[in-house]
Amino acid sequence: MDRETGLNLALLGVMLAIPLWAMAADEPFLVTLTTRAVIFAIAGIGLNVALGFGGLVSFGHAAFFGVGGYAMGILASHAQGYMPLIEWPILVEGTKSMPVIWLTAICASALTAFAIGALSLRTAGVYFIMITLAFAQMLYYFAISWPAYGGEDGLSIYLRNAFPGLNTMDPIQFFAICYALLLAVLFLVARAARAPFGLMLNAARQNEDRVQAVGQTPYRLYLVAFTISGAITGLAGALFADLNRFVSPSMFSWQTSGEIMVFVILGGVGRVFGPVAGAALFVLLEHVLGGVSDYWHIYLGAILLAVVLYARGGIFGILTGRDTANG
């Protein structure tokens, strides 16, 4: 087992130990805080598929986070109001079932990512950053001006959605659900990163000419990566909405896109576990520095600057002494 694998396991161990200890010590707030980190980690893992493996600097992942959140909000609000979603030609009711909501969130955000990606990926560099930002902002203003689902005020869901056999209102049980999903996403992304798709995508990030010369089309690889990336971030959005029992247009805001990007950069771009470390550090800083000063983002900014300037591999780069995850 190499050092990086050890670090990965240690990180997962700590993220499991904190809420277990917190529950024993009767500190439910810490459980919720860790759950928040776990959900952010999933969102970051999603962005990392595009940004880390494909080199696609998306500044619009809030779009998928928000679509996931609103998928939950819309389904659950119809269910709690006993209002069918669609009556004709077929009757579609809202639902409070988490698995159904996750599936809807994943499909909706994957479709959104496919559409945004198909257009945005015709550009590159700064234009790609700007166009993804523009799409996310479009959705943000759409959510604000859509009165049916709360508009600017957002949507409150009174009870967390249901998972068969569990009491999701119990913080530790909801944590367990999110943690299990984190493990599943990590496993699948780690496999995909080493599979033919991951190898070719990684090569496209390094050298598009090379990929074309071996007969493959970078655009297709990027589009599939961007779609998967959006789907994972969408799942995180649905979980985040359930954590807060609240959905608001701020999930679509560019600050959200920026924060997801911070998880990836802090942790280590292109490493499967990087965003987990980044999200954990972000939530820790938010909690600790947020207690010190309302202007804690200044400190976060300074740390981010230091990472970008002196530690390109993020926390994982510092701890493993390697800049990139390859080789």
Binding site: R191, A192, P196, L199, N202, D209, R210, V211, G215
Partner: peptide
Amino acid sequence: SLAMEFTVLQNAVLGALGHRGGVFRFFRPA
């Protein structure tokens, strides 16, 4: 024009993979 971060073998496998096709496989390590 090679993938500079890859090992020599990875670059060669990249060629073999591009030729064989089946790039959109997500589970078994290349």
